[in-house]
């Protein structure tokens, strides 16, 4: 789980062009869409692509995203559960 979380942080930085952001600055349990990273609706859509591209997981309903992308931890848990 730890290594997945670390990898995920790097993938998020890369996919969302969070230049000047260090993986250690993304708190595992904190809300991804809180104040800190300044993410918006386009980033949420890009995270859906990230899951599909890197983990082969398709999320059809964008509304699901709110729960999945709550934090890096919830994302990692979702991947663990759904990855084939």
């Amino acid at each position: 789980m730890e290594s997945l979380i670390e990898k995920l942080k790097e993938q998020i930085i890369d996919a969302l062009n969070l230049e000047d952001t260090d993986p250690s600055e993304i708190e595992t349990d904190e809300p991804l869409f809180g104040e800190g990273l300044g993410l918006d609706s386009i980033d949420a859509l890009e995270l859906i692509v990230l899951l599909e591209k890197n983990y082969g997981i398709r999320t059809e309903n964008p509304k699901e995203g709110q729960k999945i992308f709550y934090s890096v931890k919830t994302m990692a848990e979702y991947i663990k559960k759904h990855q084939k």
């Binding site: 969302l16 980033d43 890009e46 599909e52």
Partner: peptide
């Protein structure tokens, strides 16, 4: 095939 929303916009 991974159309990117953040590029498309």
């Amino acid at each position: 095939y991974f159309p990117s929303p953040s590029v498309f916009v």
